[in-house]
């Protein structure tokens, strides 16, 4: 009974042993390569963007950055294992099919997002990948179907004595 229950705990432990200690330095905001306002022209019938929050999870004593807003997930295991969540970046990437958007992450990697499909019911299928400049792709592909406003999270990249937690939302 007990060991059987510990099974998933081992998985949890495995996935959480990611923190690589580094010097704690406040990270500069990453550069959104696509920050320019959209070009004028006929409005698309459906326009989606990806809102990306880049959080830095550490075991500091600052708690959850109020700029993050209400995120009950951060108070749940495994996220609750980190005591501090700081908002490093907040970006909105306009999504258009066939036009990938990129965002520089604080750890030097580059997030790329694409709109794969527009789905009925205020939802969209989006893809994301994380690339290491000059190196191999870190996360070659992630495809997610998401309703507008519903978050999904990519966490675990080591960064400055903690990890990065990327919170995505498809927004209109």
């Amino acid at each position: 009974m007990r060991l059987e229950r510990i099974g998933p705990l081992a998985v949890l432990v495995a996935m959480l042993g990611l923190a690589v200690p580094r010097a704690a330095v406040a990270g500069p905001a990453g550069k959104d390569h696509n920050a320019a306002p959209p070009a004028p022209g006929p409005a698309a019938p459906l326009s989606y963007s990806a809102e990306v929050l880049v959080l830095h999870a550490t075991n500091g004593d600052k708690g959850i950055d109020p700029r993050i807003g209400d995120m009950p997930e951060l108070k749940k295991i495994p996220f609750s294992s980190y005591k501090t969540y700081e908002l490093l970046q907040k970006a909105k990437l306009p999504l258009k099919q066939g036009e990938p958007r990129t965002l520089d992450l604080p750890n030097g990697r580059v997030l790329q997002m694409k709109l794969v499909d527009v789905l009925p019911g205020d939802a969209a299928k989006v893809s994301a990948s994380i690339n290491q400049p000059g190196g191999k792709t870190f996360l070659p592909l992630l495809e997610v179907k998401a309703k507008v406003g519903q978050p999904f999270i990519v966490a675990g990249q080591a960064y400055k004595s903690g990890i990065l937690v990327l919170v995505f939302r498809v927004v209109k």
Partner: peptide, 12 residues
């Protein structure tokens, strides 16, 4: 709601 999470094992 349930929030899906992808947890990456970063390369040490």
């Amino acid at each position: 709601e349930e929030t899906p999470v992808v947890w990456l094992m970063d390369e040490p």
